[in-house]
């Protein structure tokens, strides 16, 4: 699950437009394995946080209803080119990933 996260952050006027693409299976726990008939255990991202220059801008909680390989877009006013964006996620099994990008 250490597949890298992709972040693209660009300035649109005075607002930073941040787009994040994560790599995660986002298993709902409601699907059955067609071979065994057993339910596939849930495995999904529960918490996503984003900071700009170390300040929290987005604190998000997710359920299994977010699509596989999640996309997240958000906007931050007052950020400027060169600021550092860091995105973290934690899933229901305690796995984590983090990535950072510079606003361009």
């Amino acid at each position: 699950m250490a597949d890298p996260m992709k972040i693209r952050a660009t300035m649109q006027g005075d607002v930073a437009d941040v787009k994040v693409l994560m790599s995660h299976i986002m298993e709902t726990g409601q699907r059955k394995d067609p071979k065994t008939g057993q339910l596939i255990p849930a495995h999904f991202i529960q918490e996503v946080t984003a900071t700009v220059n170390g300040k929290l801008v987005l604190d998000s909680q997710w359920s299994q209803a977010i699509s596989k390989n999640p996309f997240l877009g958000f906007k931050v006013k007052g950020a400027k080119a060169g600021d550092k964006v860091v995105v973290n996620w934690v899933d229901n099994k305690g796995e984590k990933n983090t990535a950072e990008a510079t606003i361009g």
Binding site: L56, S60, S63, K75, V76
Partner: peptide, 22 residues
């Protein structure tokens, strides 16, 4: 489970979010 996700904004983040759901 009707609740899909929640987003809390601070420090200049706008009330905007874009995502993909099931």
């Amino acid at each position: 489970n009707p609740l899909c996700s929640t987003y809390d904004f601070s420090n200049g983040a706008l009330g905007y979010v874009s995502t993909r759901v099931k």
